[in-house]
């Protein structure tokens, strides 16, 4: 009985994995096929020899390396600034008791529930007012201090750092900001890692915001560049697919290397509620 159950269990799980992984596999296959091979029937399920041609075509349509750089730059800036402001705020909430703390914290958590679409139009108008349309900073400056990030890191700091450590540092003459920088930060590495990866991935994949703000091919990020390719007459799907593969690969590799950390980082907010 358990034997049958076990086989059945694995059959279901493995089928699920095949369905989940197939689009990724096929994406890499399609990136090596010619346009004719992509639209052939039955579909080609194994790698072809058009990789370099597709790559050259892609580069003719859009400055894709530049687009990748833009994505990387925005994601890196978003990550570094988010980590700084969120760890600072989290440190304040985790290690101090102060007047109004409960209210301020509840207020901050409340802002997580606001759907982003509510602010999208005025955000665009603001960015236009600042002269930030078509500029990378429009995509990382507004999100620098995220409530989710503070919430996540607060949990982490509270569980990882005893207040006695803070007191000890004070007795040694440490100022409060130095305690943050030299005592707290070095001890919350894993927490920062999880939030960093979550932020990076979110920024790397951001579409709607980038679509609204970025207007020229040299400022496009990967998702916008890919969607612009799709709009072209006689879309070259081989070129599109090498683009999707190149855009997905870095994140995929990072995820496979640190999947446990990323998953726990992403679900930590849910668990503690």
């Amino acid at each position: 009985m358990t034997r049958v159950a076990k086989i059945l269990l694995y059959a279901v799980l493995v089928t699920g994995v095949v369905i989940t992984v197939f689009p990724f596999f096929w994406m890499f296959v399609l990136a090596t096929l010619s346009r004719r091979e992509i639209f052939a029937y039955p579909p080609n399920l194994w790698f072809g020899s058009y990789l370099t041609e597709n790559y050259e075509n892609l580069m003719n349509f859009v400055p894709f390396l530049r687009n990748m750089w833009n994505s990387l730059y925005i994601a890196a800036m978003a990550t570094v600034t988010t980590l700084f402001f969120c760890s600072l705020g989290a440190y304040g909430f985790a290690m101090y008791d102060f007047k109004g703390k409960e209210f301020l914290f509840a207020f901050m958590i409340g802002t997580i529930m606001i759907p982003p679409i509510l602010g999208t139009i005025p955000w665009f108008i603001m960015m236009r007012f600042f002269g930030w349309v078509d500029q990378a900073r429009a995509l990382w400056v507004p999100g620098m201090a995220s409530a989710f990030g503070i919430f996540l890191l607060r949990q982490y700091i509270e569980s990882a750092i005893p207040r006695a450590l803070q007191d000890a540092a004070r007795i040694d003459g440490c100022s409060e900001i130095r305690i943050y920088w030299q005592v707290v930060l070095p001890l919350v590495g894993p927490g920062l890692g999880a939030l960093g990866m979550v932020t990076f991935i979110g920024s790397w994949n951001n579409f709607l915001g980038a679509l609204i703000i970025l207007r020229s091919r040299v400022t496009y990020t990967i998702p916008v560049a890919l969607s612009s390719l799709q709009g072209m007459i006689s879309t070259d799907y081989g070129a599109v697919m090498i683009g999707t593969a190149l855009g997905t690969l870095p994140i995929l590799i990072a995820f496979l290397m640190a999947s446990n950390q990323i998953i726990s980082g992403l679900t930590a907010g849910a668990l503690k509620e």
Partner: peptide, 27 residues
Amino acid sequence: RTSYFMPYITSTVALTLVFSIIFGTRY
């Protein structure tokens, strides 16, 4: 866990483009 979670971390745009071919009528 890692396998099932993979779609979530990758760009919607990129994978949706792959699905536009998966959904193709004749191919």
